[in-house]
Amino acid sequence: MTSLPPPGTRKLGLVIDLDICVGCHACAVNCKEWNSGGQMAPLTDLDPYGAHPHGVWFNRVHSFEAGEGGEGRTVHFPRSCLHCEQPACVEVCPTGASYKRAEDGIVLVNEDLCIGCKLCSWACPYGAREFDEDVGVMKKCTLCIDKIYNETLDERDRVPACVATCPVSARHFGDLGDPGSSVSRLVAERGGYELMPEMGYKPVNRYLPPRPRKDSAGCTGAPAALPTPTAGAEANPLLRWIDRMLSR
């Protein structure tokens, strides 16, 4: 159903820590790997060995610079579906293929209903929808629905592929509808934010901002410079060490 379900209490989503994301693309590739054989398989690649290789990816990692010169920051920025609470990508879908699950808020595409009109991808401000030109249907991040609920997997493995694989642990998964969940607490502590709130889609995913730099005097508690030695030592600094009692 394309109309949205009544707002649920469970809001599964991701929290991405831009302070430590090194832009390694592990999450993007592991996502591709998992999903290539998963719910939305395949994630077709066109012209894979040719002049214009391009394929379906549910997660793409951008790099930005913010600010000027040495004062600025380089920020690596993974982008995938934010599982919005007000996802127009769902409402615009003429067939009901695009839907938001009532029980956990995951936004999915039912490929069997999809006519490939691409409208939902126009309606997503974040570019989170990926059209599979070969299959003719829209695909997208499933929040690894076939992994997070997969009872054939070890309990600990029931997290999205991108989260499990992130080497720096910049990705967190959980229920953002529960203020007590670890992800909600993380968002609260670190000032996690929504992307483009002005669009009104109310994304569930949150991004944690880069922490302030520690590159000014006093930031580690150290003085701005070491004290200059006393006048006597200045003359022959070696003398300071001559009387030091040392043992081995």
Partner: peptide
């Protein structure tokens, strides 16, 4: 990468000396 994630999480200071500010250097505190 595992180590850097931990280290920054603990609030230790990470300085990267590198002519280029990408990758690890991008997340350095200085």
């Amino acid at each position: 990468k595992i180590g850097l994630g931990k280290l920054k999480g603990r609030g230790a200071k990470f300085v990267s000396v590198n002519p280029v500010r990408t990758g690890y250097s991008a997340i350095a505190d200085e």
